[in-house]
Design a protein around this nucleic acid. Sequence first.
DNA 1: TCCTTATTGAAAACAATTTTCATTTATCGG
DNA 2: CCGATAAATGAAAATTGTTTTCAATAAGGA
Lengths: 142, 142
Amino acid sequence: MKSDTWLKELRKQGYRLTEARRAVVETVAQSPRALSPTDVYNLSKEHYPALGLVTVYRTLEKLEELHLVQRVHQEEGCNAYLSEAEGHQHLLICTECKKAVYFEGDDLGDFFGKVGEMHNFVVNDHWLQLFGICEDCKRIYD
Amino acid sequence: MKSDTWLKELRKQGYRLTEARRAVVETVAQSPRALSPTDVYNLSKEHYPALGLVTVYRTLEKLEELHLVQRVHQEEGCNAYLSEAEGHQHLLICTECKKAVYFEGDDLGDFFGKVGEMHNFVVNDHWLQLFGICEDCKRIYD
DNA sequence: TCCTTATTGAAAACAATTTTCATTTATCGG
DNA sequence: CCGATAAATGAAAATTGTTTTCAATAAGGA
């Protein structure tokens, strides 16, 4: 289970495993969509009512440091966190239900390098997201 | 001059041309990098010291509506505004000096459509940015 | 030039995030 | 298993970024 791996990883870094952390990790690890700190707070409180919002912020910060989650930028805001994929991948996000899917970039890296050369830049990083409507939402809205 | 075009466009939409607006438009139109509201405020005050930060927010909002500027998301924040390019283009940003350059996407749209199909999504929009070091900064740091 | 109304800047309100701090609790060593 | 200790917690305060409110100002049509 993904949340167990994350907890193990936190432990490996010397962090302690608390009820609050478990609840947050659980919530984020199993979510198919990016969640804001407040989303995480509300969802996690069902497992651990004493949870404080501050702890959500602090835990998300650690998970991001360990590259277990990544921040996702969307039209509605830039404070949502999503379970990260293996390797560097790109995101396909449903603008209706916010479900997020990772996809491989294939040979995009070569193209990006060429674009850089054309403008005399050394390209170090890229950031690619596609937005659309997923199958389920298509069904509902048609 | 780009700022004159923008002012004309604002006028065409029925907005009035004030000193405050002129100062903001001037600043943003001629900047080679994305500026935060506070950046715009500080730079524009040199031309018009009585300027208020609120007016900067309001003017940027209008410029965005008219597609004269676009919001740029970066690691350091997501509240910076940049003069928009003709057509839908992509950004190449220097992580040192923040200078931004637009580039053509060529046939990326086809690829994005295919990625969508593979996951049963209808892709409506995409968002691509490259990050690197520009020629000038390369020179300084090598 | 006058009149109307959009626009302004200051201050207050609001929202999101971070800091502070006294209390709690996970982990380590015995 | 227990006690010591330092990390982690939640509440409240502080901070930061943005929006709203409002009385005063000024743009632009008549």
